[in-house]
Write a protein that binds this DNA or RNA. Structure first.
Lengths: 234, 234
DNA sequence: TTATCTTTGTGATATATATCACATTACCAT
DNA sequence: ATGGTAATGTGATATATATCACAAAGATAA
């Protein structure tokens, strides 16, 4: 919470290593326009990148780091919709509804993002069908993934939900069997829709059963087969 | 289950009364192309329009009637993702993943649909940015609605969930306080993620409290304020 | 007609999980 | 140091809801 975002005015999207699939459909002149309307910023772990209810004046592209997309409407408990990986746009789904963001975004690790002017972004979609096609594609896939996760969560018990979450981090986010969980136990509970205590207890059970080993937030999968089975049967 | 879909080979999308927002961005020549690649069909209540796992060879446009979008993966219970209103495309989100539909679609009322060739549809998206923009917009809004419903469901108790569902039909689907529920109690349970028995009991409570009156599947809201309050607090 | 199946309501019981309570540890600021 | 706050683990209890069991009503078929 101590560092102010560090803005760079000039960016060069043509030479950017972190370009999105969609931006690869842009012409040279479109990329120039993008560069002129694109500002980079950094956030530290824990910082809020975008708050629910804020104006959708810019599209945010996540170059580096992990972000949680979460809601916290009114009196309700926080709910983490998903953990967003690099090379995705944040909150695309909000730009067509009203003019406000429907979810909040916070950095789970140090993060680099680009702010892209919404008008320029919309112009690309309207005038470059292939760009729109890529954006549409990513929104659709995102939706499908989230729908599946939601339904799974609804139908599984805590052991299944936790197995899912661990597998999600191991396979989708990190691609390794040993990783540092970027969430507190409380946040993990918000992600899988249970209570902190239940998460703690279920982790203890998995450890006792030698399915995983845990050292603080470092998790190692010891028995992938059993974990996947729990996820299926859960 | 007794009527075979009744296919019409010729259609005229230019003069269609049920045209989607997106199709209104199409040029005359594009509309002609659409007409040539568009077949109408009818389904009776209860018939399956599209099954999970089937090939996404066509896009289906819902002209008339109500459809349930549901999943039923493997051993799991059925889960109704949403009730789809007329003038929407069915299963748009599935066309970019693999080549299969991820959810099933069944008619809740008599239904009229149009099958649109997927290649033609994709061509419109890629070549007509405004068409893509409209499609993207509808996918985004759909996603947001579903995300909100999911989170609400996770955090509310049965009374709140049922209140939500009744308000959803009254306000969004029918626009009246008195309507015929197009779902059985069992399906209603699948929609809000509980058991049939719990739905029955909660309905009885609402009736006893004079919040709604019920005659079979006909529902009338007697006390809108209290119902909305239960939905909020639930 | 009778028989079978589906839908629905409702009471009794079982159970998973939330909640409460408390202890421990670590981290930060003064 | 030292006090305060946040994160975590774990046992006891409360509770919402699923599950089971059964009855009644309608629909459908023989």
């Amino acid at each position: 919470m101590f560092y102010q975002p560090d803005y760079k005015i000039f960016s060069n999207c043509q030479t950017c290593d972190d370009r999105s699939c969609a931006s690869q459909t842009l012409s040279v002149s479109e990329l120039e326009l993008l560069s002129k309307n694109c500002n980079e910023a950094k956030f530290e772990q824990g910082e809020t990148i975008l708050a629910e209810g804020s104006r959708t004046s810019h599209i945010i592209y996540l170059r580096e780091g992990l972000v949680k997309e979460y809601g916290k409407s009114g009196l309700q408990e926080e709910y983490i919709l998903q953990v967003v990986k690099p090379h995705s746009y944040l909150g695309l789904h909000s730009i067509y509804s009203d003019t406000n963001n429907h979810y909040s975004y916070a950095a789970l690790t140090p993060v680099r993002v680009c702010y892209i002017d919404l008008n320029v972004f919309s112009q690309f979609i309207k005038e470059n069908g292939r760009f729109g096609y890529e954006i549409l594609s990513s929104v659709c896939n995102d939706s499908l993934n989230n729908y599946h996760r939601f339904i799974d969560q609804h139908q599984k018990k805590i052991n299944g939900k936790l197995a899912d979450a661990i597998l999600y981090f191991a396979i989708v986010i990190f691609g390794k069997n040993k990783f540092d969980l970027p969430l507190s136990r409380k946040e993990l509970a918000y992600l899988i829709g249970t209570s902190r205590e239940s998460v703690s207890k279920q982790i203890s059970v998995f450890v006792k059963d030698k399915i995983i080993s845990v050292d603080d937030r470092n998790i190692k999968i010891l028995d992938m087969n059993r974990l996947q089975n729990i996820s299926k049967v859960g």
